[in-house]
Amino acid sequence: MSDTIIKQNSLRAWILAARPKTLSGAAVPVLIGLSLAYMDAKQYEGDVFSWTAAALCMLFAVVMQIDANFINDFFDYAKGNDDAETRLGPLRACTQGWVTTDAMKRAIASTTCAACVIGLPLIYYGGLEMIFVGLLCVVFCFLYTTHLSYIGMGDVLVLLFFGIVPVCVTYYVQLHLVTTEVFVASVACGLVIDALLIVNNYRDRDNDKRDGKITLVVRIGEHYTEYLYLGLGVAACLMGGVFWMNQHVLAFILPFIYLMLHFFTWLKMRRIHQGKQLNECLAETARNILVYGLTVSAGLLLL
């Protein structure tokens, strides 16, 4: 997309900077956590499931993802690691001049504050521990782009903040406990979403080596990365056996639709191997994540 058709700091520029295609990664863990909580809430007398808390959890996750995207856009540009000429991924707002750096700084401050304001009422539902959870989300949102992604910690953070934390905390806010089923489901969710980071870093492996960014892909090499990508989807579906053991058979079976799509994306990833065309695999992986979230949730709710 040419930068000549994007007016600087326009609504369109901000929509592109927010990267709407990435928001499924924020929404899916919350969706799974809510589905588990809604299902288990039926065991209790009265209406213990709060739709207000559910909406706050979803909104907090989405705003934090937008915040993370803004932070990534700004700091990668500031560090000089977002060269428009060599970049293989989707174009970035600051690099293309769609959004000025001063405007992006203000946007980061605004979205960070907005996320905190949205999350504050969750103290009423989940207790004071929600303050600690919120602070962790904000701090690591900055640390990921500024430091941790450069030392191969990105995948660990995805597992934590796109799996364990959002699924378990969303469930905890509703029922004030976390079951084994919920924890296993949270890890499986994190593995599924990590596939998005894996294919992103697989595409950028040569540029990352040049820039001194030691991602997991750079550490283990492209051959093992290809099988890691496939293995993440397989492991997540096998971990879904916890649903089967808890009499939620559909929640185990339906995600194999996701696994089929994941397998075909893996074949395409190996065939393309390198270059900008891998963005097709990135888009398909985002789609697959959404399919995973929807099939798990449908399997839990369609009893």
Rank of each mutant, 00 (worst) to 15 (best):
R287M: 12
A251W: 05
L216D: 05
Y227H: 14
H223D: 15
V217E: 10
E226D: 14
D204P: 04
Y258W: 05
F264N: 08
Y224E: 15
H223I: 14
G233N: 06
I214C: 05
I220A: 08
L216G: 06
L232Q: 07
H248K: 15
M245C: 10
W244V: 06
Q277K: 11
E226C: 11
N207K: 02
N246L: 01
H273I: 01
D208T: 10
N288Y: 08
G240P: 13
T265D: 15
F264M: 11
C281A: 06
M239L: 15
Y258I: 04
F243K: 08
V291W: 00
L261A: 13
T265E: 06
C237G: 04
V249M: 12
I220N: 07
H262W: 11
N288I: 01
K276Q: 11
R219D: 09
G212L: 05
F243Q: 12
K268P: 03
L232R: 02
T215I: 06
G221S: 09
W266P: 10
N279R: 03
I220P: 09
K276H: 08
C281K: 00
L238K: 04
A286Y: 01
F252V: 10
T285Y: 00
L230E: 10
E226N: 14
F243L: 05
E280I: 11
D208C: 11
R203V: 00
Q277R: 09
H273G: 00
M239C: 09
G212S: 05
N207F: 02
P255R: 01
A236G: 07
Y202C: 00
L230D: 09
M260L: 15
Y229I: 01
L230G: 03
T285A: 04
Q247E: 14
I272W: 07
K276L: 00
R287P: 01
N279M: 05
D204T: 00
L282E: 00
E222K: 09
Y227G: 02
D208L: 08
H262C: 06
E226H: 09
R287I: 10
H223N: 14
L238N: 04
R271W: 03
M269K: 03
H223S: 14
F252H: 07
L232W: 07
E280A: 09
Y229K: 01
L228D: 04
R210Q: 13
W266M: 11
E222N: 10
M260Q: 13
D204C: 01
I253R: 07
I220K: 05
M260G: 13
L238P: 09
E226P: 02
M245L: 15
G240I: 04
R205F: 09
I220E: 06
L230F: 13
L216P: 07
F256W: 15
L290S: 09
L232C: 07
L250D: 14
M269S: 03
L254R: 04
Y229D: 00
